[in-house]
Design a protein around this nucleic acid. Structure first.
Lengths: 413, 413
DNA sequence: AGCAATTATTTTGATGCTCGAAAAAAGAAG
DNA sequence: CTTCTTTTTTCGAGCATCAAAATAATTGCT
């Protein structure tokens, strides 16, 4: 029952967090700028910076180089000490896996890519597969293995309450496994799992800096339909982000068959396989193909642009499914902006009218207006950025949380 | 851009908030218990308590009375000083308005009830009507007017971004008015507006203490359909609550006509007027009646219990609308519990099967299971409790935020 | 009645973090 | 070589917390 009482320790953590966070967002900064950015006094910044530099978390080495213009003592810019910590980012998707080793500044150090097929995780348990990836990257980059503080993964599916595994996933063989514990016992490393849609939202927002303070829903349209939301609390000022199962919101009860086995999901109408099914008049009860070649989807977009009636109709149906989904979402979360990412961004003009009219057919859409809709094709970049931001923030917190100061053993001896 | 840096002031506020909050939740407590409850040290509790008692916010007068059993120095219990502040709670609904004057301990001091009809706010501007209510209660309770620190209101409809008015409301004549500013300029009092569904959720959760740490969706079923959610952040530990426009989520595109003017809203199938329309075979395009007598709704429940086919079917349709709404909600917010409040709680057994099968027809429902569904008939109590909790918490924060200590003017003189 | 035991609260001294103001540092300009 | 400007550090307080010791207020026992 005991609540956490604030003490001078929590405030130190908070202010150090502020400093590290400001450096993440704005790049290398001089102490004076940091004071302005964080709202702390110069004296405090000096104290914190000295501490962090002594601990090897920050460095002010050779940062005085550039844009020294006017007179006065030149500013020394602080930046993250790149080699104090490393992190591995794992991206899992239906047909590919990618591992990235980044340093504490966020710079990519090494990368492994692998193809997956439906049997991959029958042959080798997912945790073993990922552990092998981690080990291989450590081996290729000597000196990193002891400084590897965190492993994060992007996954598709429904994450369990504990956050260490999946209760369902479109990736065959991935669900059920308690990835977190298995990897921990295998490699000794903590794994943090994030839903892909959530990272997509977080990462895309980073790419649209103007939307930093906005409520945004990010929709991925491609082989699946996914969504994440970024919410900025009006009173608390706190920013939260979350993944959703938007793609599996029921659009039409007992409707078209979805890959997940349910009937009538938005995905079954708006993902690539759904659009193709509609376009070619394949019965909506037909089991979806495992994967649609990218070129086929692009060709369909071309056909619709040329006015091919079947293709046009297929994108109208998809737009309507997405639009009604957004219409329904808006009763719970009313975003000021919607961003469409992934291959479907190309097809947005073909779906725009249907989406907007479906939104306008709801009370909230009518009263608050249709949110502004933006597009961004490259979803891989978003996911990587999101994962990177999550990992680095978590390292920041881990690093300054447990350190009492330097020279703590002289006290106990 | 400047962030808020933590300082000793913020930590004082936080810890005082902890103390006041613990007393709200657990009633009068001795300093020792308070230390255990808040996690603060005894020394700190003494300092804070002394301060708050000196400021007249808390009192330890005559609280030693009861359950003194064992030996040792008897505990002195602290409680809120009842007459240091008062608050007025306004509840606005389609056909009634209620004002309650409560003291700082939350005790009801006075109450005014009034009936509303569709022309009420044509005759008198809503803000004037409410201001008159406030003034009348102050006049009837001498000594309160200078101690009235806050006015809160429960409203139905869509609250604007600024949070001081409504952009739409089912209460005729209420939307558009900038209630907050009008009341401020009329009475000099700050008005805080809360969506009724949100209070319903917050208040109902207070009535189910076991659900304090759960994610709950509270659905009101009656003359309208409303919903609020209480979310407990897994990582942050922060608890948030929010209102939704669940009742106006589109169930069937271009479906039955809703009171809001849109077609196909859940409300149009599941609110009292919707159920009656279905039961008596009235065309779904018929304009809804302004109000349904409570007895008529109860009679329909009775009829369905007896097995009357039209009535049974009407509740099945309603259950299906609500169930698919929950099904869709769960893609965005996955509650562990659902609470049904209001007149419709009585009809829950008639809708249970439809609701649960609709939830089970979604991926999330299938994978994570159907949430536990509870009922609670009295929605008035929930709203009052929610409003009370909001008002008192806000007073707590206002009271200890701006006070630098006592005797601050001797410094400046 | 008087003293020991027990539990609640307050006092005391120390710690840790912040802040404002003043001082020191590091060049640029003249 | 001196003066000016801007950045960074130092210094002395202020303030809220905590642990431990002291004090207060009762009950129970002799």
């Amino acid at each position: 029952m005991a609540r956490v009482g604030g003490d001078s320790d929590s405030i130190r953590r908070q202010n150090r967090g502020l400093v590290l966070d400001a450096l993440r967002r704005a790049g290398p900064l001089a102490r004076t700028k940091l004071a302005g950015e964080t709202g702390l006094s110069h004296a405090t910044i000096t104290a914190i910076a000295t501490d962090l530099v002594n601990q090897g978390i920050l460095t002010d080495h050779d940062q005085r180089l550039t844009d020294q213009k006017g007179r006065g003592r030149p500013a020394v810019r602080l930046s993250h000490q790149r080699d104090i910590a490393y992190s591995i980012l794992l991206e899992l998707e239906v047909n590919r896996a990618r591992g990235s080793l980044i340093d504490y500044s966020g710079t990519l150090v090494d990368r492994i890519e692998a193809e997956l097929d439906p049997t991959s995780f029958e042959i080798e348990r997912p945790a073993r597969f990922l552990a092998a990836m981690v080990r291989r990257m450590c081996a290729r980059n000597p000196g990193t293995e002891h400084k590897l503080s965190i492993v994060t993964a992007s996954v598709q599916g429904i994450v369990n309450r504990a956050g260490n595994g999946l209760t369902w996933s479109p990736i065959p063989g991935l669900a059920g496994a308690n990835l977190g514990e298995e990897i921990l016992s295998d490699t000794g490393l903590e794994l943090t799992i994030y839903k892909r849609g959530r990272l997509l939202a977080e990462g895309t927002r980073i790419l649209f800096p103007d939307l930093h303070d906005a409520n945004v829903a990010t929709v991925f349209i491609g082989a699946t339909i996914a969504m994440g939301v970024c919410y900025r609390g009006p009173a608390t000022g706190r920013s939260e982000d979350a993944g959703t199962e938007f793609g599996h919101m029921v659009h039409i009860p007992n409707g078209a068959l979805c890959r997940c086995g349910t009937h009538g999901c938005i995905e079954a109408y708006a993902a690539d396989y759904g659009v193709l099914r509609t376009a070619y008049g394949v019965p909506a009860t037909t089991r979806p193909a495992p994967a649609v070649p990218h070129t086929q989807y692009v060709q369909l977009i071309e056909a619709a642009r040329r006015g091919d009636p079947g293709a046009v109709r297929a994108f109208n149906v998809a737009g309507s499914a997405i639009g009604y989904g957004l219409n329904r979402l808006m009763t719970v979360f009313d975003p000021s902006h919607i961003i469409i990412v992934g291959p479907g961004a190309e097809a947005f003009p073909l779906m725009k009218d249907e989406i907007e009219s479906a939104i306008a057919a709801s009370l909230v859409g009518r009263v608050n207006g249709v949110p502004q809709i933006l597009t961004h094709g490259d979803e891989q970049e978003s996911i990587f950025r999101g994962l990177q931001a999550k990992a680095l923030t978590q390292i920041d917190q881990d690093l300054f949380a447990p350190l009492p100061a330097q020279g703590s053993r002289s006290e106990t001896a």
